[in-house]
């Protein structure tokens, strides 16, 4: 355990440890299950194996087979069953092995989770968390690598979290489990091994709808999520010596979206670029660009740009795959060009 200053980490006060993003998620699950015995989990290979990415390791031993349940390959049951279990007073936290599989449980996610409360006049709450290992991880292929968070944004009734750091992974997951509404929790597979400081507290809960300034700056605002946050910060560090001071904002949740923080930043920097791994067309970058021009058109000195994943399926080859998502170099080049307008 190490203790770092609040100024160095951006976390106010208290003791911290440096742990991995995976460990942070595992701790959030364990702590919330200890806190509230209505919380339980199901999914494929989450029990005996501890999850294909090891996120649920040790939980079966601690909480037993009724609270950490291995299922068959049956995504409609995993999500639809969670919806039904939520109506009966429990808080299911379920895992789909890959975020892409949300399409195999699409009716359950976009209809049952998102609309049940609404359709039935507000008589029920739907406290379900669906954990979705997301994004490019290296050769997983077109149906195991997508970033689908924008699709989740488009259907009313779902909250959407996209944690980029171990601290946010833990704090947002704890918030998600305590939320009475359904949450799609997009964990980036490429971040599972990344380490970072996490507050030493059972009450480290990161509220939804509060963006984080990952790097302060004055010349250009870059909004990025997931794996792209670190790349955007790395790009900013490369640009700093060249007199381009980039502010990187990580919204942390897309629903609700903290547009106020983004607009306030743009009003200072007068330039905006959105970076996301998801395909370019109709991605959340388009939404953010639109909202910013609606609210702060006259603050903009240049068009809003997007640096995004290609409008293609993802090839399985790891090198080709990387060519389909924004690299640090691409972010640097685009930011330099945008700053020059």
């Amino acid at each position: 355990m190490t203790t770092t200053s609040a100024a160095a980490t951006g976390v106010a006060g208290g003791t911290e440890r440096v742990i991995g993003y995976s460990r942070a998620i595992n701790e959030a699950l364990a702590e919330e299950m200890r806190r509230d015995e209505r919380v339980w989990m199901m999914g494929q290979d989450i029990g005996r194996l501890g999850g294909v990415f090891g996120l649920t390791r040790g939980l079966l031993d601690e909480f037993g087979p009724l609270r950490v349940r291995d299922t068959a390959i049956n995504e409609t049951f995993i999500v639809g069953g969670a919806a039904g279990a939520a109506l009966a007073g429990t808080i299911p936290v379920v895992e789909l092995q890959f975020a892409d599989f949300l399409f195999t449980a699409a009716d359950e996610i976009f209809h049952k989770l998102a609309k049940w409360r609404y359709m039935h006049g507000g008589q029920f709450t739907m406290p379900v968390v669906v954990r979705l290992p997301s994004g490019v991880v290296g050769g997983a292929g077109a149906e195991h690598s997508q970033s689908l968070e924008t699709i989740a944004m488009h259907v009313a009734g779902l909250k959407v979290a996209v944690p980029a750091t171990p601290s946010d992974a833990k704090g947002l997951l704890k918030a998600a489990i305590r939320d009475p509404d359904p949450v799609l929790f997009f964990e980036h597979k490429g971040l599972y091994r990344v380490k970072g400081p996490v507050p030493e507290s059972d009450e480290h809960v990161v509220p939804f709808g509060s963006a984080r300034v990952a790097r302060p700056g004055n010349d250009l605002t870059v909004v990025a999520t997931g794996l792209m946050v670190d790349r955007a910060v790395a790009a900013a560090e490369q640009l700093a010596p060249h007199g381009i001071d980039v502010e990187v904002i990580d919204p942390r949740t897309l629903v609700p979206l903290d547009i106020d923080t983004i607009v306030a930043s743009v009003e200072r920097t007068h330039r905006l670029m959105v970076v996301h791994e998801a395909s370019r067309t109709a991605g959340f970058g388009a939404e953010i660009a639109t909202q910013v021009q609606e609210r702060a058109f006259f603050a903009l000195d240049a068009p809003v740009w997007r640096v995004c994943g290609t409008d293609t399926p993802l090839p399985q080859d790891p090198e080709l795959e990387q060519a389909c998502i924004p690299s640090t170099d691409e972010i640097v080049a685009a930011a330099r060009a945008l700053a020059a307008i």
Binding site: R67, V79, G81, G84, A85, A86, A88, T90
Partner: peptide, 14 residues
């Protein structure tokens, strides 16, 4: 079908 099974799973847990 799946919702009902899930509701029953909650009853089993509780």
């Amino acid at each position: 079908f799946v919702m009902g099974a899930g509701t029953a799973a909650a009853s089993q847990l509780l």
